[in-house]
Amino acid sequence: MARYIFRRILQFIPVLIAISLFTFVLMQAIPGGPFDFAGDRSLPPTIVANLEAKYHLDWPMWKQYLSYMIGDDILGEEGGSRGVIRGDFGPSYHFRGQTVADIIKITLPVSAQLGFMSLLLAIIIGIPAGIIAALNQNSWIDYTTTFGAVMFVSIPNMVLAPILIWIFALILGWFPVAGWGAKPPYLLGFLPTALNKEFFSHAIMPVFALGTGSAAGIARLTRASLLQVIGEDYIRTARAKGLRERAVIVIHALKNSLIPVVTILGPAFAALLTGTFIVEQIFGINGMGKHFVTSVGNRDYQVITSVTLLYAVVLVIANLVVDITYAWLDPRIRYD
């Protein structure tokens, strides 16, 4: 297993290089540059030229890329970049004086909190809902759950979020309209220090907006999967042993039925990540997703490439965790 994980990580290095190169080139191909505007006003060309020279944007693109990835000293050039490989993601062009690392340190914990809670919500609502629906197949419980699942799968979060704000913040006034209830410093670098009312009242709507789609998808898959498993021969064997129905379901059906559910957690996680772009924007949450979108508008090249790389790493780790869980659930799967 350790060898498998190691190999997966090695395989991922060329993928990361491709992603960084692709993002880097694509960003620079977009018309406009990071120094076109200061606030609402456009800057005089001489100042723009100076700034571009300062950040080496006048270098040929291959050199800029190598400077970003491996550092200036290896290139034999003057300049401060130590390269991504040594943990230097460079400065932000837009927020001058801040490095990309500074920005990530502030925004990543917020997004991680939002994303993790949404994933948790998706799992702890989705799986039980699917199980309950399957065990009460064709009853009103099943129909209600299935109807709810279809509804929430079909409502995109950019529609759900404003509806939630309108009802629960504006009409009922239960929750604040926007913002996030945890501030730095964070526990272990990403956990909120206090799980208080302030935190949850801010979190509840964005987490709901982000997580319900996945919860609904997981519920539908769990239901279908459990129904299929209940029809399997080995379930009849379990009943023929004289086991109670509860033991038949819990011991013999559940684990089998979760195997396909685990395999969609990878894509579900990716959906949550991209969902943060929208949800953080709508709820005005200062997370990485919102910052990422803003950075595209600002042509903040280093931020965009670095955050893209970070997303890629997170997704790969998530998929690795999924694969390991999968092997743990299904003894027929062995990696080596």
């Binding site: 080995y234 064997t237 023929a240 042993k241 004289g242 109670r244 299904d330 003894p331």
Partner: peptide, 23 residues
């Protein structure tokens, strides 16, 4: 349930699917 699986037992046609794959 007390009779089933103790006094009266049954084996089935397809051994490939009659045992639980994850146990």
């Amino acid at each position: 349930r007390k009779v089933r699986g103790s006094n009266m037992t049954m084996i089935f046609q397809d051994p490939m699917t009659s045992l639980n794959p994850v146990l």
